[in-house]
Design a protein around this nucleic acid. Structure first.
Length: 469
RNA sequence: GGCGACGUAGCCAAGUGGUAAGGCAGAGGUCUGCAAAACCUCCAUCACGGGUUCGAAUCCCGUCGUCGCCUCCA
């Protein structure tokens, strides 16, 4: 059974078939690096990281390209405001992004092209479009003539003529038609510029992606991804440019994630965005929560639907993470045969099938995590029944494998308490003596004090264990 | 106004014609000196109104509501 994947282009779920057997060419739109990335950007990156990991789990070799838009109006604006060089400014945010990739446990893309390193290809693509009559030069600008593209609007499902009436596009004298969009912008004084047949300037936003894709992956790719706010005009324009230049279908599957939304104190729900100012940066989030919490949030909601970020979802996913971690606690018994062992193995195997069925169904993360929780219960039940040894280890290994496919790390937090272990053990021993002497008030005090320091004590039949909160 | 997505328990959600997965929260229980964790049990008829069908959360029509895009945006 093939993976079922929703395709924005067709508006339906389709069986996934690659251009080449077992190989996937995937391009995901990255951020415009003029500002610190927020968790909405992280959500998008996480969605495609999960998709990539699952494709790899299913045996595909994935070529994953992600761009950086490192020259555009906003970057120039901000650089001017701060009196800095725009290229240097962008460079800083790109470095930040690479750091986030590590912090969020994202698989690094196989290539990270930038607009500024794709100039030759951009210029030659624009040249081709002019030669083929799809673009025209005007005062050093170059525009794409939308009406030369017969099926323009097919991705966003819009009619060219319907768009015109509703358009609030500021009229630009140099455009032949208000729908036309810029491929190349003539440089204004003080702006970074590159040479071109139409004079010094810089590329429009959409053309860079087309050029990078053709350069890095070829004229046809399997998956083109990004946030659903990019469907129009960005991706629509990419299709128009690319297909007008190559006469080949551009991307087979257009995959778009829903937006992360914020619930305001007034209860209003709005898209998280830089322009609205209602965002939480990735760094701020990670200062207070493990990356797994964000990943679980993303997994818990359909990737195409909006995800509301508020204190409730945060707390809920903190708890989910704790529960997942409970499955990784070591065995306490040594039973390696019998009914409990067989039940464990059977439940784990069934849960793995459930996991695959869920992910095959357009990457249903909620279903996939449900399968994970089936495994959690099976492992904890088996542990309580005294199951240990190889069977328990094998079950945990399967659980671990599946969590890794989802990109979850499930690492116990050691925070800044490295080396504290022996001291904590000593306190536990002291507390055990107090308990033996029925000095419960003192024993509880010790436990509370440790809890305040982030150390959780749990008394079990086998003695007391501890972990970082 | 146009295009698109969506509306399942207090909350997040699975489900694509045969009488509702999972998680959080809540209630009760086992264990414990107590607590925590874990485990067990309980907790919905699917926005509303029509229709198709032996049978619908699932298909069709309508209504209401939410969000996104139509302008830079993951």
């Amino acid at each position: 059974m093939a993976i079922q994947m929703f395709n924005t282009l067709s508006g339906t779920v389709e069986p996934f078939q690659t251009l080449e057997p077992q190989r996937v060419k995937m391009y995901v739109c990255g951020p415009t690096v003029y500002n610190t990335a927020h968790i909405g950007h992280a959500m998008s990156a996480l969605v495609f990281d999960i998709i990539r990991r699952y494709l790899q789990y299913r045996g595909y070799q994935v070529q994953h390209v992600q761009n950086f838009t490192d020259v555009d109006d906003k970057i120039i604006q901000r650089a001017n405001a701060e009196g800095r060089d725009p290229i240097v400014l962008a460079e800083g945010y790109i470095a930040d992004w690479h750091r986030h990739v590590g912090d969020l446990n994202l698989l690094p893309a196989t290539a990270y092209p930038r607009a500024t390193t794709t100039m030759n290809e951009i210029v030659s693509l624009i040249t081709t479009l002019i030669e083929r009559g799809h673009a025209y030069e005007a005062d050093g600008d170059v525009y794409f003539r939308v009406r030369t593209d017969a099926d323009y609007g097919k991705l966003s499902h819009r009619q060219v003529d319907a768009m015109r009436t509703g358009a609030r596009i500021a009229p630009d004298e140099r455009k032949d038609d208000p729908l036309d969009f810029a491929l190349w912008k003539a440089a204004k004084p003080g702006e970074p510029a590159w040479p071109s047949p139409w004079g010094a300037g810089r590329p429009g936003w959409h053309i860079e992606c087309s050029a990078m894709i053709i350069k890095e992956l070829g004229p046809q790719i399997d998956i083109h991804g990004g946030g659903n706010d990019l469907i129009f005009p960005h991706h629509e324009n990419e299709i128009a440019q690319s297909e007008s230049a190559t006469d080949q279908p551009f991307a087979r599957y257009w995959v778009h994630n829903g937006m992360l939304q914020m619930r305001s104190s007034a209860g209003e729900i709005e898209k998280m965005s830089k322009s609205l100012g209602n965002f939480v940066t990735i760094d701020d989030f990670l200062a207070d929560h493990p990356a797994d919490v964000l990943r679980l949030m993303v997994l818990g909601s359909p990737y195409r639907a909006p995800l509301v970020y508020d204190a409730g979802t945060l707390a809920e996913n903190e708890r989910k993470l704790e529960r997942l971690m409970s499955a990784l606690r070591p065995a306490t018994g040594t039973t390696s045969s019998g009914a409990a062992v067989e039940t464990l193995a059977a439940t784990i195997a069934q849960a793995q099938r459930n996991f695959e069925a869920a992910m095959d169904n357009d990457f249903n993360g909620a279903g996939a995590t449900a399968a994970l929780f089936e495994m959690v219960r099976a492992l904890n039940t088996a542990r309580d029944a005294g199951v240990g040894g190889e069977p328990f280890g094998a079950a945990q290994a399967t659980f671990r494998q599946i969590t890794e496919v989802l990109g979850l790390q499930l690492e116990a937090q050691t925070s800044d308490g490295e080396g504290a272990g022996p001291f904590i053990e000593l306190l536990i021993k002291t507390r055990a003596d107090l308990r033996k002497a029925k000095q419960f008030a003192l024993a509880d005090h010790l436990r509370n004090e440790l809890a305040a320091l982030g150390v959780i004590l749990e008394d079990g039949p086998q003695g007391t264990t501890w972990r970082w909160k």
